[in-house]
């Protein structure tokens, strides 16, 4: 039931990250209805106010929209999702490169490793 949230980073940021992955991976597809704040809060075992804050922030970023009477939906603008995917991927790759540098591997070695293992 829990989302494995870390207690030493702001919870609402981690909620956003979690939901972003859900959107990019397609487990929350474009145009899908987002569960209510309360349901999500209970699933993530967090305070509803924190969940509300995370969802509002995602709305501000254009990843979700609220329809006045029927609730909240994932955006159906594929370009927003594609650019989110790019962002998340580049953050992941940056982290990976840093780690490989710490191991003392150069560009060619890393590329070869990636090709061999992917």
């Amino acid at each position: 039931m829990s989302w494995n949230l870390d207690s030493d980073r702001p919870i609402f940021i981690q909620i956003i990250e979690h939901l972003e992955y859900d959107i990019v991976s397609g487990s929350m597809p474009p145009g899908a209805k987002v569960p209510s704040v309360r349901e999500l809060a209970s699933e993530a075992a967090v305070n509803p106010n924190t969940m509300q804050r995370a969802l509002s922030e995602m709305e501000r970023q254009g990843l979700m929209r609220t329809e006045r009477t029927s609730g909240r939906y994932v955006t159906d603008d594929e370009s927003v999702i594609t650019s989110l995917k790019k962002n998340l991927a580049s953050v992941g790759v940056d982290g990976f490169i840093k780690q490989m540098k710490r191991l003392g591997l150069d560009r060619e070695e890393v590329l070869k490793l990636v090709k061999d293992n992917y």
């Binding site: 207690s7 030493d8 980073r9 702001p10 919870i11 609402f12």
Partner: peptide, 13 residues
């Protein structure tokens, strides 16, 4: 969340 972002620690910490 203020504690977590300003001090980088959990409330417990």
């Amino acid at each position: 969340d203020e504690i977590r972002s300003n001090e980088g620690k959990s409330v417990d910490g």
